[in-house]
Design a protein around this nucleic acid. Structure first.
Lengths: 137, 137
DNA sequence: TAATAGTTTAGAACCATTCTAATATTATAG
DNA sequence: CTATAATATTAGAATGGTTCTAAACTATTA
């Protein structure tokens, strides 16, 4: 048990295959919010079907989250290492991770409003560069 | 100018066609978070292409928002009348509107973190019925 | 009422994602 | 170590929600 990623997989009830170890490490060490195709291009030895299958498992196990409000029409993925939210630059489609917000009040409000037990949340904000050419107030 | 919906369209630079008036009224008076196909079924005189085209315009003009984290794989739409967030029951895919949360601190935090001017945000929470069969703690 | 700019439409096309079913691998037990 | 069962991987086909096309129509303006 010298490979901690292998532990992570097994603790989540997933067989530790080469592909899963490679994919998990990739997601853990990159914050580029890739699509399945981008990952497949970076890791061509893993078939596109396996990229999709494996990411789906990782999402189920909450190791990865989906970002799907991007105007390129593709599903992006992000490691779920630590709680954070996303800010998307709508001009460039750049996806920025941010964490300077405590979701606890939101989760409490949602539980109060619906009676449901909140298991996940997603916060995406969309913004643009402020116009620095503004000359007079 | 007796039709206030006509005003809404024209104020947003959209020609007031029959289809747009019908669709806008539909969205304003329903909180069922329909897909394009559901709307087309309810309003069969409006072609599916027009439903998509028109909703796209409405989203551009911020009259409507997209809800696309639903596990049915389809895009849902919601009137953007008043600021609110969504809570999705992941067992039933029911989408619940809620408004008991002030997004201002979140928007402030995002602007502070990124320097971007936030123009939109999306908050979706996912939850399940709390298990009422739990017998002992 | 004519001009024009924009809208609607049916159906075709697209393409990201899912499915299929044959092959290969992991984990477990003997 | 095997053998075994269960699960994972894969190439390529299929799917289906959404977008595109280009021809017919309509709101708007003068």
């Amino acid at each position: 048990m010298l490979n901690p990623l292998k532990n992570v997989l097994q603790e989540h009830g997933l067989k530790a295959t080469t592909q899963r170890l490679t994919l998990l490490e990739y997601m853990m060490t990159h914050d580029n919010h890739p699509t399945a195709e981008m990952i497949h291009n970076e890791l061509p030895d893993i078939s596109l079907a396996t990229v999709y299958n494996t990411l789906e498992k990782f999402v189920e196990k909450k190791l990865v989250v989906i970002i799907d409000g991007i105007s390129d029409g593709k599903r992006h993925y992000d490691a779920a290492d630590h709680p954070h939210y996303h800010v998307i630059n709508t001009k460039t489609n750049e996806i920025i991770d941010a964490a300077n917000f405590d979701p606890a009040p939101l989760i409490k409000a949602a539980q109060a409003a619906t009676g449901l037990k909140i298991t996940e949340y997603r916060i995406d904000l969309y913004g643009v560069e402020p116009n620095t050419n503004e000359v007079h107030s």
